[in-house]
């Protein structure tokens, strides 16, 4: 692939309409992202999806046609938006695809009534002790607040959302927002080293970048407001402080695809202002599966 990977088009919907008519809303964001990229579905050769079978109640890879995947090279990565976005990047850079449609969705507002994620804990030790992601996240927040009392209190709002990004080469798209770098870091359900500070994991992921950004716009998605704010101090503690945080994932969390909405927001922002952006996706009960993506470009 010549040039760098760039976001050629993007669209998003967050709100109750997504749960009411999930397939139509996913299709709408796919079509809108294609329109904004000025590409047709025929130009797409790979579709990467990120969504949860548990939330959907239907096996996602067998319903990928809602994202226009019929006849395309599919790749389903339900673990996180960050993993899926990084996968889309390497599909392009390796030459497996020329244009990738990345679509993610989730109707997670139902979790506010019954949090089915209790089934994520191991059945021998953790589940009998009542471990559920909500409690694990709260425990993490409690430890963080003990050490860093200025962080915001923990909280997360479940929502419904659908996002689509069209990715391809930046060649011929000088004003496109480029995905300059991606790095990951991870820990087990309970971090093996007993350290729950997400900033540690974010720094590990960013250490894999080829270049560090100067004063980026920052968007974070994680298990709750406390952890997100702590992760963002990788940039917001700078002197002078960096640009304000974009609205975070915990304000409207719709499952593993949530950080695609943060990617969408960064894309919109950078398309207007240019500069650099950082997406921090922290998936998992403590946000322990981290992907950090560096974006650059857009309008000068």
């Amino acid at each position: 692939m010549k040039g760098e990977v760039a976001i050629l088009g993007a669209a998003a919907r967050v709100g109750a309409s997504v749960a009411a008519d999930l397939e139509s809303e996913v299709r709408s964001v796919v079509l809108d992202s294609l329109a904004s990229s000025k590409l047709d579905l025929d130009d797409i050769d790979a579709v990467v999806t990120v969504a949860s079978d548990t939330l959907d109640g239907v096996m996602v890879p067998i319903r990928a046609e809602v994202a226009g995947a019929f006849g395309k090279m599919p790749l389903n990565i339900p673990s996180s938006a960050g993993h899926a976005l990084a996968a889309a990047v390497v599909l392009l850079e390796s030459g497996q695809a020329r244009h990738v449609l990345l679509a993610g969705w989730g109707a997670a507002s139902k979790l506010a009534h019954h949090d089915s994620r209790s089934i994520q804990a191991d059945p021998f030790h953790d589940r009998p002790a009542g471990a559920v992601p909500a409690q694990v996240a709260a425990l993490q927040a409690s430890e963080l607040l003990d050490e860093f009392p200025d962080l915001p209190p923990h909280g997360i709002t479940f929502a419904d959302g659908a996002v689509a990004l069209v990715l391809g080469s930046s060649e011929g798209h000088d004003a496109a927002v480029r995905i300059a770098d991606a790095g990951t870091s991870s820990r087990g359900y309970y971090p093996e080293d007993d350290k729950v500070d997400p900033l540690r994991w974010v720094n590990e992921a960013m250490a894999k970048w080829r270049q560090q950004p100067a004063k980026p716009q920052v968007a974070v998605s994680g298990p709750g407001r406390t952890a997100e704010a702590r992760a963002a101090t990788a940039f917001t503690d700078a002197t002078p402080p960096g640009p304000a945080l974009l609205p975070s994932g915990s304000e409207a969390w719709f499952g593993p695809a949530t950080a695609l909405f943060q990617a969408f927001q960064l894309h919109e922002q950078l398309s207007r202002t240019g500069g650099e952006g950082v997406l921090i996706d922290m998936a998992g009960p403590m946000g322990q599966h981290v992907t950090c993506v560096r974006l650059a470009g857009g309008a000068a």
């Binding site: 790749l75 996968a87 994520q120 191991d122 991870s186 087990g188 093996e192 599966h289």
Partner: peptide, 28 residues
């Protein structure tokens, strides 16, 4: 019987600090 088993199953594996994702394509 364990949803999103990557958090439980991958701890302590070689490369466990560099998880790149879970791939789910049924039997593929």
């Amino acid at each position: 019987g364990v949803d999103e088993a990557q958090y439980w199953g991958l701890a302590h594996l070689p490369g466990s600090r560099h998880v790149l994702g879970r791939v789910h394509a049924a039997a593929a």
